[in-house]
Design a protein around this nucleic acid. Structure first.
Lengths: 200, 200
DNA sequence: TTCCGCATGTAATCTGTTACATGATTAC
DNA sequence: GTAATCATGTAACAGATTACATGCGGAA
């Protein structure tokens, strides 16, 4: 039920429309927590209203069709109870990690270093965005929020450090030594050759 | 199609059964890349075989029913092509981050520090697991794989550092200053009180 | 002989996205 | 006047999980 709670969290900052909420997930969050699409957002808002966690406090204002949602007492209680519960461990899906784990001897290392450079670029951009955000004098960020931003910053700095180290290692051919007790690396090459012969 | 590729990647290490693959995602990966359930694994293996990326090389061996899958030439090609493509940016879903962003003045900070301590504990365990893994002399890890492990290590170390910093900050009441240009913090408390009065 | 690990699979369900449909307001 | 942004919503589809169903082999 985590997405529903995130919606309650966004509304807790200030009464918001579905559109506002989507924006909050798109920009502020940029890569730090997950996004959501209108296709799931609007049905969920409807459900949260039916269940009494939120209410529409404004509708069809100034000729323009819009619904501003606000938390009810029940909504605040639910938010507090969610905040109190131990958060689930982070779930990370990192294709770069998977690809490195699967990288094999016949793959060009320059390709990998391109991937890492690209990742580095993304990290620099995000880091830049976050650093501006925390002193833009526009967003509401309380002291705990600052701790959260520091969390994101440290992780990105670690990513950057790793990227620099790794690019250097690849370019200077100073890769760390692996381990291969059953000689699977050699067997892998052999299996590849076999597959090739068989299928061609 | 990323999960399918991860399956090909696991088989590339050595011919594997569905059960083996599940295990690889469960243990080795522990929090570093995503898991998958039998409910999606077996249908995908079937599909990959139908499409000619993998073949069954052994079946019903030693009386026991089992299927060992191996990559075909087409499978190796698909794997190489996937490795060559720029990996998608990592997707992170971190409830702790969301909760901190939503933390408000009426919430007890000791609860938050408990959450962070729990997170710290998880990070220590994972770090310990990874450090043992990279010198267990049992797993096949090549030089690029070592780079991947270093990646995970650095991120976990950053997490640890942040946790220590943050717990200290909370306990010594030395929280970083936030920003609140529109005084939303005060308004939030007022909105809470209003909701309470209205609904009770 | 009973439990645990190995091993495969399906059906119901849940959760979310993409693409589509609609329309008002605002900035250029 | 026209493009971008604000704004809400649905239907078809994609993707994955949970729970269930089955059964062998080895260890205690």
């Amino acid at each position: 039920m985590s997405i529903e709670h995130s919606i309650l969290a966004v509304i807790s900052f200030q009464p918001s429309t579905g559109y506002d909420i989507k924006g909050e997930f798109e920009h502020k969050a940029a890569g730090l927590y997950w996004g959501l699409s209108y296709g799931s957002l609007y049905p969920k808002l409807k459900k949260l209203e039916e269940e009494g966690f939120i209410v529409t406090i404004e509708s069809e204002s100034e000729g323009r069709r819009k619904k501003l949602y606000e938390l009810t007492a029940k909504g605040w209680e639910e938010l507090d109870s969610w905040l109190s519960k131990n958060p689930a461990p982070p779930s990370i899906k990192d294709e770069l990690f998977m690809k490195m784990a699967a990288w094999h001897r016949e793959m060009d290392l320059n390709l990998l270093s391109d991937h890492i450079k690209e990742r580095r670029k993304e990290a620099v951009e995000l880091l830049d965005y976050i650093r501006k955000w925390k002193q833009n004098n526009t967003s509401f960020i309380n002291d705990v929020g600052m701790l959260a931003i520091r969390y994101a910053e440290l992780k990105l700095e670690a990513e950057l450090q790793w990227a620099d180290e790794s690019i250097l290692a690849i370019e200077n051919d100073e890769m760390p030594a692996g381990q291969d007790p059953y000689n699977l690396g050699e067997k892998q090459l052999e299996r590849r050759r076999m597959a090739w012969k068989k299928d061609h």
